[in-house]
């Protein structure tokens, strides 16, 4: 455990120095650590694949609800890996899965976000409390300020929208950023000093 903590600390110091300083020695060390990180990530991908296959094979064996989806997943996983291994990851067959299936499915999911936002907004924008009324009012002003029709209704909508975004919203965003950046550094100090070591398997 102590060795793991020491390795984390030394590597983190090297990467921090690489970020702030220009030095050939530090750069060499930093780039080596980054390369090791890529190797570890590749091993982690192998572990993830084992986890995925184990869970879905059990689902198929036990014929759990929608087990057919697990079967499809295993077939696609094996066939895609096979195509990549035997035909290469730049072959048209390999790319077909990405361009013909994965990308359209990803785009579909992304497009669905609009509908999910609409249903969430419908609930959030009900003027039941002072907070939600303020949210509704500001939301309407910002939307009208962004849409051309807003300027036609009242010429000051874009001006008001710009002020809302640049002054109160920006102040809140900067407060969030400053707080999160400082909080992130504090988490880093806790992890690197070994105070937080749950990720290494050390319980409180």
């Amino acid at each position: 455990m102590k060795v793991a903590k020491l390795i984390s600390l030394v590597f983190a110091i090297v990467l921090i120095l690489q970020f702030f300083f220009v030095s050939d020695t530090i750069n060499t060390f930093g780039n080596t650590i980054t390369s090791w990180n890529i190797v570890i990530a590749a091993f982690a991908m192998g572990l993830a694949a084992i986890n995925l296959i184990r869970i879905h094979v059990i689902r198929i064996q036990l014929k759990r609800e929608n087990w057919i989806n697990s079967l499809v997943l295993i077939i696609v996983l094996v066939s895609q890996a096979g195509v990549g291994l035997f035909l290469g990851d730049d072959s048209s067959q390999y790319m077909f899965f990405f361009d013909g299936i994965l990308n359209p499915l990803g785009a579909t999911m992304y497009a669905l976000i609009a509908f999910w936002i609409a249903s969430a907004a419908f609930r959030a924008f009900k003027a039941r409390t002072i907070d939600s009324t303020a949210l509704l009012t500001v939301g309407i002003i910002v939307m009208l300020g962004n849409a051309p029709v807003g300027e036609v209704i009242w010429s000051q909508f874009p001006v008001l929208q710009e002020w809302l975004m640049n002054v109160p919203a920006m102040a809140a965003i900067r407060a969030l950023y400053i707080g999160a950046a400082i909080g992130g550094i504090a988490v880093g100090v806790r992890v690197l000093s070994g105070i937080e070591s749950g990720h290494l398997g050390a319980g409180e």
Partner: peptide
């Protein structure tokens, strides 16, 4: 993220152990 998987497994296991 695959890199998070073994850490999350360790954290959960440690939680049960604790």
């Amino acid at each position: 993220q695959p890199i998070v998987l073994p850490i999350a497994e360790e954290v959960v296991k440690t939680g049960y152990r604790s």
